[in-house]
Design a binder for these strands. Structure first.
Ligand SMILES: [Mn+2]
Ligand SMILES: [Mn+2]
Ligand SMILES: [Mn+2]
Ligand SMILES: [Mn+2]
Lengths: 218, 218
DNA sequence: ATATAAATTTAGGCAAACCTAAAAAATAAT
DNA sequence: ATTATTTTTTAGGTTTGCCTAAATTTATAT
């Protein structure tokens, strides 16, 4: 069954909130993410429920069924493949791509996704470091930890950042990208801010909210 | 002002029916093309009219305004650029691309269109030979005539075919593509069918309805 | 010129996806 | 254990884009 763009956006949002362990997601959280109102969410949950894409019991939040998860993974796959395309082929910067990918992810054509994947030579991560699910919806788990949890004096490689334009532009400005080598010079125990040495060159002080949106591999 | 997908489809349909000289287009023709009913068309015409995209007078058909023409040309530009992309980069065949391009043409992002155009190195014709409007909406007119009008014994190069999947698959089967050299061996004056020599190799008999959907340059 | 047919518009409804305001249920605080 | 707060659902509307059926206008045929 083919979903509407709106239904797809709900599935994707539920997927992102549920995390790997498929926790129940609340009506309010969905509404907040989608910029709609709780009443609208309730309506849509009923619809998705009759389509067996979610498990919904009044007042109890929702979880994705296997079928719903599969659909959500396909949308995420498309989103990330298109983001990779925009950066690698069309020379967009990583902060310009999300909105366009939000549109492109809803293009309905199985063959298009697979041809795009081949053309891009089966990328495994999008420009922000997020893993791209394969055709079957399998995601490669890379071990990664938040920069904020890295102990002083340790070195680490950036492998994932949050896909938020303002953050991304800021990171570009201070010279952080996927693959950057960071050394944690100092951690301020009061406000959790950090002094970083980036690629062995520049020292930059970052706040905890920045450090919270960067993940690294040691 | 940003148009809905539906509004864009109406503009594009009016554009295609109006031809170069921007003739008035009838309600019924629009309905037939879009697979909707005349009543729905009338409704939409009122809406497009208040947006000054068309000139509409009850019972008199519609014409595009300059603004409407500009919008239509942009949609056509996007459709054809995406078709070119699908064939040249993703290795689709020319009969598989129209439906996907119908979706892609509605992606809203000015920068995307221009980056795509650059990436493709500013193609001037789509895979069916249709001209791609430039950024300003200018279309290069190539002189071209219908194969059905070519006189016996003349040779000609295929430069445009109608974008209809069944036709395209048939042409592929008999070995006709853009750039093929055709020699008109015989014209049957009874049913307008033709015997063609394709690229100096194969002789193929085609009906008038096929010949009507192929254009050539002498 | 008048009757018939075809094209177009109007009137009244429907489904999707949103909204606000009010009611109901669940949670938290005294 | 009540009361207050928060969360969620229900009820009733709106907009967009579609529909059918009926009315109106235009075109065609006798
Ligand atoms: Mn994104
Ligand atoms: Mn991303
Ligand atoms: Mn096409
Ligand atoms: Mn085409």
């Amino acid at each position: 069954m083919i979903q509407t763009t709106s239904e797809e956006n709900y599935l994707k949002t539920i997927f992102h909130h549920a995390g790997i362990s498929n926790n129940a997601v609340s009506t309010n959280d969905i509404a907040a993410s989608l910029g709609t109102k709780a009443a609208s969410v309730t309506e849509m949950l009923k619809k998705l429920s009759t389509q067996k894409l979610i498990r919904y019991k009044k007042y109890n939040g929702v979880t994705l069924t296997d079928s719903g998860t599969k659909q959500a993974l396909l949308i995420v796959r498309k989103h990330r493949l298109w983001e990779y395309f925009l950066v690698e082929k069309l020379k967009f910067s990583w902060d310009e791509i999300h909105e366009v990918a939000e549109q492109l992810e809803h293009i309905q054509s199985e063959v298009l996704v697979e041809r795009l994947d081949s053309f891009l030579e089966h990328p495994r991560f999008d420009p922000h470091g997020d893993p791209i699910p394969d055709k079957k919806g399998v995601i490669k788990k890379s071990d990664s930890q938040k920069l904020i949890d890295v102990t002083e004096k340790k070195e680490a490689i950036v492998n994932l950042v949050t896909d938020q334009p303002e953050l991304l532009r800021y990171l570009s400005k201070i010279g952080i990208s996927i693959g950057s080598k960071l050394k944690v010079m100092e951690k301020n125990s009061f406000d959790q801010s950090m002094l970083l040495l980036i690629n062995g060159k520049n020292k930059v002080q970052i706040s905890s909210s920045i450090a919270n949106n960067i993940s690294v591999q040691l």
